[in-house]
Amino acid sequence: MDHGAKIAGKTRTDFMLDAACEKAEELLLDRTLFVVDTERFERFQQLLDAPVNRDAFDRLMSRKAPWD
């Protein structure tokens, strides 16, 4: 682990945090079913139905995806 951190130019802590985040992202991206309560689902539907903020959308689409 220390060798990997050194090669990456990171501290051991940063290296381990990055590895943990990558694993969490991988796990979430592999999920196909998300269970939420009624309140959160209704909020989700409201967000889907809301008009698109074009500036925010353009900023989002210009960001690099975490898996790239």
Rank of each mutant, 00 (worst) to 15 (best):
F41N: 12
K23W: 03
N53L: 00
K10C: 10
L28S: 07
K23R: 09
E26H: 06
R43H: 11
A56S: 05
F34R: 09
F57W: 09
V35T: 14
E42Q: 14
D14H: 11
P66C: 04
L29E: 15
T32D: 15
R43D: 14
D18S: 14
T13M: 05
D2N: 08
D49N: 06
E42F: 06
W67H: 14
T38Q: 15
A24R: 11
Q45C: 03
V35M: 14
E22L: 08
D68G: 10
M1D: 15
R40Q: 15
M61K: 10
Q45Y: 00
L28K: 12
H3E: 11
R40V: 13
N53S: 03
D14Y: 07
F44T: 05
V52P: 09
K10V: 05
F44N: 05
V36K: 15
R43C: 06
L48F: 00
T11M: 02
F41M: 12
E26R: 10
K64G: 09
D55A: 04
F44P: 01
A56F: 07
I7M: 06
M61A: 08
L28F: 10
E39M: 08
L27V: 06
W67P: 03
A20L: 01
G4M: 02
A24Y: 09
A8H: 08
F41W: 07
A50V: 03
T38V: 15
C21Q: 12
V52N: 09
E42V: 11
L33I: 13
A56K: 09
D58E: 14
A5V: 01
K10L: 15
R43P: 01
V35P: 05
E25C: 11
R43V: 02
R12G: 12
E25A: 13
L48V: 06
